[in-house]
Amino acid sequence: MSQGLSITDATTTAAVPVLQIDDLHVEIRQAGRVTPILRGVKLSVSAGRIHALVGESGGGKSMVAKAATGLLPESAVTTRGRIVLAGQDVTRWDEPRWRTLRGRTVSMVLQDPLTALNPVRRIGAQMADVLRLHQGLRGAAADAENLRLLDQVQVRDPAQVLRQYPHQLSGGMRQRVVIAMAWACRPQLIICDEPTTALDVTVQKQVLRLIHRLAGEGQGVLMVTHDLGVVAKLCHSLSVIHGGRILESGSVSDVFAQPQHAYTRALLAATPRFDRPGHTLVPVDDALIAQLDDETRAYDRQQGVAA
């Protein structure tokens, strides 16, 4: 009896999402114009799992990432729905409250590590900021933790990297440093926004391997990407987004075996395959995009948004 209970407990803990977004509607209100950007987004990321948010540019995927870190632009208004982060409803939190969560509960890895790092400060000093701010570590304790973090992201000579400036590192090294900083406080959720787009393929593989290993330690990862190859190799589940609407969600094995939505199939057909001689790339059909845009407008009318 008690054994059965503990098993249920274990399964429920495993299934507890670190990020749960329900029916999220966000619109931009600027110069008297209202533009919906997220239309009923629903997704969840569980602990120890990597969930992908896939779509083309302008589809709203970065906006979801921003909403989940409290970094939406000032002009953005959340009109409906909710965001639950590590058990707390953060939907309408203000900036001071978000600051208590960022770094500690949720952190972010951005596409371009060069803009994420301060160009005129040494790597060691920037990493020490994170540890001082969130964990109160200083001096020798911070140095030791920095070395441990860089070692964990497989930086070969951590002591030297700590003394260097961002421009002295290769793109892959910089992205490792950013990942180390994001992982520094063991946040429950890490949002990676196109983390490997700017990297060479061989370096990309190393960074993906790293994200996979770190996620194995129990953190949830939301992987924002346009690369279905990365999704297939790294992630457990995915949501496909277009026009701020989630068109399809499911496990990676199910969706790649049988994509339900025409847009998912179109994205797959547009992904190059070197292993298939004679495979011709099919750009996403204009008619399909027009149809999706029609559906989006119909959705807006139904929601009563004046377009």
């Binding site: 990309q204 593989k205 297939a232 190799k233 094995s253």
Partner: peptide
């Protein structure tokens, strides 16, 4: 060979990463 293998093809493959 290393370059070719590093390309993530859109096909689930749990062994690829390692």
């Amino acid at each position: 060979r290393q370059l070719l293998d590093a390309i993530p093809l859109p096909e689930p493959d749990p062994l690829w990463l390692e």
